[in-house]
Computed example of a mutant assay.
Amino acid sequence: MKVFLTGGRGMVGRAIREHAGARGHQIVAPTSDELDLTDRPAVMAALAAERPDLVIHAAGRVGGIQANIAHPAAFLTENMDMGLNVVMGARAAGVTQLLNLGSSCMYPHDAPNPLAEESLGHGALEPTNEGYGLAKLAVARLCSFVAREQPELVYRTLIPCNLYGLHDKFDPKVSHLLPAIIRKIHEANTRGDDTVEIWGDGTARREFMFAADLADAVWYMAARIGTLPDCLNIGPGHDHSINDYYAEAARVIGWEGTFTHDLSRPAGMRRKLMSVERQKALGWAPATSLADGIAQTYAHFLDRVERGEA
């Protein structure tokens, strides 16, 4: 197939391109310098010119809790613009297959865990990342509307849990939880610090998946896109506490200090575990354990530190 991939230079996009499933396909992955996804005429022209068999929309403005709290308007508008432009551009170009990557932030703040796809759109979102969640929910809805109006257009949304992995962002101003933990503990270990601070009491629970496993799911589901529901959760189906993630990263890195907790800091939702019943029915599950994923990510981080890029 000819595949038009957005976000091809990001963590998820690079994992998709580097996966064995990409072999044999022609991957068109313009950089942000080559194509501004917030520019609708440019996006529509690019898709009309390329006329791909499949669009994978993996681009987005992403960041951790600090970035989302600081810039909610940007997270809403930029992700909304990118998603709407890609979907409508694909529709106008007659692209028959599209996989849109959503986020577990699309789920209501008070939805029961595990989060089932039927809960989408039925409640207020988590305030700390509401802008991002609203944008992702709107784009997923648009995919459903397009497919409803034109059944020959198979536009589906995959909703991954929290991700980490190679090519992640480790800057604490923009990073998600696990890369931020890795960097924090690495620096504590390097300095010889005895303690590391955790925001909140550390009992909030999160579900994380190695980005290479999401790439595996993308190619697996792309081959079965006609059998997919409108929205499909992708994840391991089990979670860990924030304290557990810190402890596992400390074990991998070799830091033997103790943790303290700042109870004045925001910790987000108490739990965010997704239901993977639909995913299981399609015969897919992630293969990378938490320990192996953290070890691979830390090795990648050390390589970037050595090159002066972290």
Results as ranks from 00 to 15, higher is better:
Gly192Gln: 08
Ala211Val: 15
Leu302Ala: 01
Trp284Glu: 08
Asn79Val: 05
Val55Gly: 00
Met269Trp: 06
Ser175Phe: 00
Gly123Arg: 08
Phe4Val: 02
Ala90Phe: 00
Ile234Met: 11
Glu130Ile: 08
Asp53Cys: 04
Pro229Thr: 07
Asp194His: 12
Met88Asp: 14
Ala217Phe: 04
Asp81Val: 01
Asp292Gln: 14
Trp199Tyr: 12
Ala250Leu: 08
Asp110Val: 02
Asp194Pro: 05
His238Trp: 11
Ala93Lys: 05
Asp81Cys: 13
Ala93Glu: 09
Asn129Pro: 05
Arg206Phe: 01
Ala46Asn: 08
Ile234Gly: 03
Phe259Asp: 07
Tyr246Asn: 10
Thr288Phe: 03
Phe208Ile: 06
Thr190Met: 12
Gln97Ala: 11
Ala287Gln: 15
Thr227Leu: 13
Asp53Ala: 11
Ile181Glu: 03
Phe75Lys: 09
Glu18Lys: 14
Met44Asn: 12
Ala49Arg: 13
Cys231Arg: 14
Leu54Val: 05
Gly8Ala: 06
Asp262Gly: 07
Thr195Asn: 10
Leu166Tyr: 09
Arg304Trp: 11
Val218Asn: 07
Pro236Ala: 06
Ala92Val: 01
Arg40Gly: 03
Arg9His: 13
Gln97Arg: 15
Ala138Glu: 08
Leu134Tyr: 04
Thr203Cys: 10
Ile65His: 07
His300Cys: 09
Glu187Tyr: 02
Phe208Glu: 08
Arg156Asn: 07
Arg14Ser: 10
Asp36His: 03
Val28Tyr: 01
Gly7Lys: 02
Thr157Phe: 00
Leu166Phe: 03
Lys2Asp: 12
Pro229Trp: 02
Leu177Val: 09
Asp194Thr: 13
Ser289Phe: 06
Asp216Gln: 05
Glu152Thr: 12
Ser289Ile: 04
His176Gly: 15
Val43Cys: 10
Tyr220Pro: 10
Met1Arg: 14
Ile182Ala: 02
Val12Trp: 04
Thr38Glu: 13
Ala48Phe: 00
